[in-house]
């Protein structure tokens, strides 16, 4: 066990956990931020995507000891009132079916638009390819990302 100070969604938290504990479980069980989802545990499905200093990473394979001073952003901290343009575009296109993967999809999409404000279909497909949607909402996700890109420009 060791004590770590994490900056999550702009607030500092101290947690006492084993160094190899993935950030996913620290968020979910120690900080009660359950928007970040467990899907595979091996960085294959993207349901656990968070931002580390603005970069999309898979929290299920990121040990808490590797975070250091980098700032963590989760779906809960993406915007104050849930109205980030990507979240709004998701609602506008009524994207979710079961909804379980969507927080991870949104976090990947936000990081994509930060680095590439005007992505082509191919850009979207290539960056989003690491996020599985078992319900098959891929077409709506693509449309929502395009809408959000337009709004954010």
């Amino acid at each position: 066990m060791a004590t770590y100070t994490l900056t999550v969604n702009g607030k500092q938290h101290q947690v006492e956990v084993a160094p190899d504990t993935p950030v996913l479980w620290v968020l979910r069980e120690h900080l009660n931020l359950v928007g970040t989802k467990y899907g595979c545990g091996i960085a294959q499905c993207g349901a656990c995507t968070i931002h580390l200093d603005g970069v999309a990473v898979r929290s299920c394979t990121l040990p808490v000891s590797a975070v250091g001073r980098r700032a963590i952003t989760t779906i809960e901290g993406l915007s104050e009132t849930g109205d980030h343009p990507v979240q709004q575009a998701w609602l506008e296109h009524d994207v979710p079916q079961c909804g379980y993967c969507q927080a991870g999809q949104i976090m990947t999409a936000v990081a994509l638009l930060q680095s590439n404000p005007d992505p082509s279909d191919e850009d979207i497909e290539s960056v989003m390819n690491g996020n599985i949607c078992r319900c098959g909402t891929y077409l709506r996700i693509r449309a929502a990302i395009k809408t959000a890109a337009q709004r954010m420009r």
Partner: peptide, 17 residues
């Protein structure tokens, strides 16, 4: 629209897990 949409896109607790 999906009545749970806003809760889904903001990561509210909704699922069994």
């Amino acid at each position: 629209k999906n009545v749970d949409g806003p809760a889904i896109v903001t990561g509210k607790p909704l699922f069994g897990l």
